[in-house]
């Protein structure tokens, strides 16, 4: 059960049960929908931008604990950042959940809790869906993105 404890870290369960920044910004400057057809997770992301920086962000939809916590912690982590900065963070998260990153990397901050995902290859897409959706919002594409 120890690896289950690594995956379902207390912080992940906490964010899954009480997600931060849940809802929709209306009006917003950018938005996108993300969908994981494998498990039916659906995430919507809405953004407010000012001079290239995220001034506010919300997410909604329904997903598993990993997806919901990832979206919640992502929204906390990207406020005030530019797209280039966010790309760097996502790359670090992506490396972390695919077992290529360093869980001790101080740049990850709270996002380091997703380190346990690397032991569960079937769940990597759950953790990355919110980030892909955020990217799609930046691309200002309103076409739904898919993890497949």
């Amino acid at each position: 059960m120890s690896d289950l404890g690594d995956l379902y870290h207390d912080m992940i369960l906490g964010h899954a049960k009480a997600p931060r920044n849940f809802g929709k910004l209306d009006p917003c400057d950018a938005s996108a929908l993300g969908h994981n057809p494998l498990c039916g997770d659906r995430i919507g992301v809405t953004l407010l931008l000012s001079q290239g920086r995220v001034t506010d962000v919300r997410f909604d939809g329904s997903g598993c604990a990993i997806c919901t916590a990832s979206a919640s912690l992502m929204t906390e982590g990207v406020k005030g950042r530019t797209r280039a900065e966010i790309d760097t963070v996502f790359q670090r998260v992506h490396d972390l959940v695919t077992g290529k990153g360093d869980p001790e990397d101080p740049e990850l901050g709270k996002l380091a809790v997703f380190g346990g995902v690397s032991e569960f290859p079937m769940r990597v897409k759950c953790a990355t869906l919110p980030w892909h959706t955020l990217n799609a919002a930046f691309d200002n594409s309103n076409a739904p993105v898919s993890t497949e």
Binding site: L4, Y8, S62, I66
Partner: peptide, 19 residues
């Protein structure tokens, strides 16, 4: 979420479908 149920049961050797 059923996906989380599936992962936890899998670690106990129990194969079910979630989705």
């Amino acid at each position: 979420h059923p996906h989380d149920i599936g992962t936890i049961l899998d670690r106990k050797g129990i194969a079910i479908r979630a989705g």
